[in-house]
């Protein structure tokens, strides 16, 4: 419960920071804080379904965030898929998984935008913007991972891990 609340608070903070600070400072190319936080939360959760749920909720919040002019659900779809993948694979090497997903995400989002007929998504735009956004995300990924780890309550997670391994050992 506390874990979920903390996750929600983190996503909320990321949303506000993204539109209030990151995009205002560098309106053209900038890191996607929301994406990184959501992926990190999913990867640290370490299982597929919670990851997908976190991704969906985070993405939906990102779609609803006020200055928005795209189809509702676009980011929810992208982040749901990526959250699922990150949760599935993020148990061992969360940083690697988050970095990989953060690189894939802009391309995936652009692809969905193209499928929906967004007039701005052209091949040249994707080619020029994807690498820049990916590099920004890569640079910020370790920082976000460290911050999320520092904020998340750890006792609960450790305890459950311990219990399960203990049970596995006895069974």
């Amino acid at each position: 419960m506390v874990r979920n609340l903390v996750a929600a608070a983190l996503i909320f903070a990321a949303l506000v920071l993204q539109v209030g600070l990151v995009n205002r400072v560098s309106p053209r190319i900038g890191p996607d804080l929301v994406l990184l936080v959501v992926l990190t939360l999913a990867a640290l959760r370490g299982s597929a379904v919670p990851g997908a749920v976190i991704g969906f909720c985070g993405g939906l919040a990102y779609d609803l965030l006020p200055p928005a002019d795209h189809a509702l659900g676009q980011w929810a779809l992208v982040m749901c898929v990526l959250g699922f993948l990150a949760g599935r694979a993020g148990g061992q090497l969360p940083l690697l998984v988050v970095a990989l997903c953060a690189v894939i995400a802009p391309g995936l989002a652009a692809g969905i935008g193209a499928l929906l007929g967004d007039p701005g998504v052209t091949w040249s735009v994707v080619r020029s913007a994807w690498p820049k956004v990916a590099v920004c995300n890569l640079v910020l990924a370790p920082v976000v991972l460290w911050a999320v780890r520092a904020v998340q309550p750890r006792r609960r997670a450790r305890g459950s891990e311990f219990v399960s391994s203990y049970r596995r050992g006895t069974a």
Binding site: V19, G20, P27, P66, P67, A68, D69, P106, D118, V125
Partner: peptide, 14 residues
Amino acid sequence: VARRASPGFEDAVE
């Protein structure tokens, strides 16, 4: 008060 700029998608402000 806020701005949202995803490259290629949208450029909107609040």
